[in-house]
């Protein structure tokens, strides 16, 4: 019981860390994409599509972490 509580707490922390990493990645993508759009507004559409694509890829990884944490937390 006690051990499983610790495991759950660690899992939640791990999920938080994973999401933090993903957020940093998406933030970088957003910053660079805005930079690029500011520099070349005519390529806006292309850049935006690629930005969303990259953000989605990273988001998937963050969700991996979150789901693993969920699995641990709700494990009986």
């Amino acid at each position: 019981m006690d051990l499983s509580m610790i495991a759950k707490a660690l899992a939640v922390i791990g999920a938080g860390l994973g999401i933090a990493g993903g957020s940093i990645g998406i933030g970088l993508i957003g910053a660079k994409a805005l930079d690029a759009i500011a520099r070349q507004p005519q390529e806006k559409k292309d850049i935006r599509t690629n930005m969303i694509l990259m953000a989605a890829l990273i988001e998937g990884l963050a969700f991996f972490g979150a789901i693993i944490a969920l699995l641990v937390v709700f494990m009986k």
């Binding site: 989605a56 890829l57 988001e59 998937g60 990884l61 969700f63 991996f64 789901i67």
Partner: peptide
């Protein structure tokens, strides 16, 4: 796999 997991998780 990530394709399916992403949609599901979101």
């Amino acid at each position: 796999i990530v394709l399916s997991l992403r949609l599901f998780a979101n």
